[in-house]
Design a protein around this nucleic acid. Structure first.
Lengths: 222, 222
DNA sequence: GCCATATTTTAGGCGAGCCTAAATTTTTTG
DNA sequence: CAAAAAATTTAGGCTCGCCTAAAATATGGC
């Protein structure tokens, strides 16, 4: 069965929103927002994906991926993240430039290509933003990291990823020399607005607003 | 102006057929054969490409690329050949496996990507089949190689490329250990059917039918 | 130069994937 | 629990890129 590029994008969006939604079906309006198509277009496509048994769809009730649909989603995510690694590691793109290009490359169809790319890159476990790369069976260990704003306390943390991939945000993190794997020392917590005083690598401290720390994933040390 | 993947494929086909046609416009039926679409569909698209000023088209008179169209064709060819180099050099695909994958990758839109890929590959001048890679201005020096069947005489030649890219043909060449850059010694010419007795690299001699030697590009030595 | 044949174009139709407007269903809320 | 509001679906229409059948044009043989 042929799956078009557009269908793959719908599947990917459903997968993403489903993982945020925790158990709930994904709504037409969520998809409409995410894909920037009108709700009526979403309904259109949901019918087609349902016919192809890629999703479970009942009118007005939201939508779930079937096993078949999830397999496709994971394959696309795997390709996307592998290409992001390629673009940063081999072509030296910065982490804020790779998303749009990988968005195109993720649709290239060749199992052999993915296999060889993965080997060539040394079987990376995460992409440049810290997101885990599913293996060829679609398996990956879920991030156990939490956001900095979740902890809201002093202490030492390791920066493991981001939950926001906009160039502006990623460039900001680069500008303060924050890279995946680096240690963060939270020196002060402002209870009023949730902002944090943070020291990175013995540099001058900087301040994270609630909005920033809500998009920074970390693991606590000790 | 947005150019779709399908439009790019038409442009590429026109470019290719134009270069064979030497001056003549490309006919609807040539394109129909090449793209495996019906003639009526070709006419359809020619009208659209003409509106976009990518081709010069007059009913019943065949078609030419405009400067704008040629620029696009060359950019696509450049990308196709660079990705073929990537696939063979970095991912160790064989030269008969890369065409279909590169056919997909050539449509990825990012000037920066092409620039970096080119640098990463060391600014290659030819692809794995010996075809020249246009530079970022679309310039390349045309192959001055001729086919083996053109020479039809004894002597020493360097194998520089192929004019046929089917996996079957390429695999045949691999099976007799013939690679780009290698020397070919023509030891005997059969006038009756145009077949050749050829020695490669001091191995057992092999025999090329007219059909094989018509698809092998060489440069004569001395 | 005319006729037969081959090529090309026009006309009309179809599916994918999008849209707007209107109808329907669900959810909220007073 | 009924009415208003919000979400969703249906109906109908559009473009792109393909098709078949029929009409128009070009070409090649006599």
């Amino acid at each position: 069965m042929e799956i078009s590029l557009v269908e793959e994008n719908y599947i990917k969006a459903i997968y993403k929103l489903q993982s945020l939604n925790e158990g709930e079906g994904v709504s037409t309006s969520d998809l409409s927002r995410h894909l920037k198509n009108k709700a009526a277009s979403i309904t259109d496509m949901l019918k087609r994906l349902s016919l192809k048994k890629l999703i479970q769809y009942q009118k007005y009730q939201g939508v779930f991926l079937t096993a078949k649909g999830e397999k496709i989603a994971l394959a696309v995510v795997r390709k996307h993240r592998l290409w992001e690694v390629f673009l940063t590691e081999k072509l030296h793109f910065s982490w804020d430039e790779v998303h749009d290009i990988a968005e195109q490359m993720e649709h290239i169809k060749s199992e052999e290509l993915v296999k060889r790319l993965d080997r060539y890159l040394g079987h990376p476990k995460t992409d440049p933003h810290g997101d885990p790369i599913p293996d060829d069976k679609g398996l990956f260990r879920a991030l156990q990291s939490k956001t900095l704003s979740h902890y809201k306390r002093k202490g030492k943390f390791i920066f493991t990823g981001v939950t926001e991939h906009s160039p502006a945000f990623l460039q900001y993190l680069s500008s303060i020399n924050l890279k995946i794997g680096q240690a963060l020392l939270i020196e002060q917590v402002n209870e009023f607005d949730g902002s944090l005083k943070v020291r990175i690598n013995k540099q001058q401290p900087c301040f994270f607003s609630e909005k920033v720390s809500a998009n920074i994933l970390v693991e606590a040390i000790k």
